[in-house]
Computed example of a mutant assay.
Amino acid sequence: MPETYDVADLERLFTAMQGDPLALFILVDVTYGLRRSELLGLKWSAIDFENKNIHIGFKVTEAVVNGKTQCVMNSVN
């Protein structure tokens, strides 16, 4: 069963992430509940600030290509 953060957990998380270069990713993830692959595939062009909407069009996953593991961006559409 998935676990969720309560208010105290979120307060600790927000305090701990201050000044971290990944803070924006963490905030977006906590706010929208994206999967790691969706968060990593997010592009600025997918964010509609005017209508307050995010379109998840890509995801990044690991795949073995020619015997080597690498990150691969896939279209979700």
Rank of each mutant, 00 (worst) to 15 (best):
G41F: 02
V64S: 06
L24K: 07
K52M: 05
R35M: 06
R36D: 01
L34G: 00
T15C: 04
T61C: 10
N51S: 08
L39N: 04
G41T: 02
L42R: 01
L22N: 13
I47Q: 10
K68A: 05
D9T: 12
L24G: 03
E38V: 02
M73S: 15
N66H: 15
V65A: 09
V7L: 13
P21C: 08
S37E: 09
V60D: 02
L40V: 01
N74I: 03
A8V: 15
A23S: 15
L22R: 14
I47E: 07
A63K: 13
L34N: 03
K52P: 01
S75G: 14
G41S: 07
Y32E: 06
L24D: 06
F49Y: 09
T4C: 13
P21A: 02
S75N: 15
D6M: 12
I54E: 02
K68G: 02
E62H: 10
K59C: 02
A8S: 11
V65Q: 12
T31R: 08
N74Y: 10
I26V: 14
M1F: 11
A46K: 01
A8N: 15
Y32K: 07
T61G: 08
A63D: 15
S45A: 14
N66M: 14
G41Q: 00
E11S: 03
V72F: 00
V65T: 09
F58S: 04
R35P: 00
L24S: 12
M73V: 14
V60N: 03
I56M: 10
S37D: 07
V72C: 05
L10Y: 08
G33T: 06
L40C: 08
R12L: 15
N74C: 04
G33H: 09
P2F: 15
F58P: 00
V60E: 08
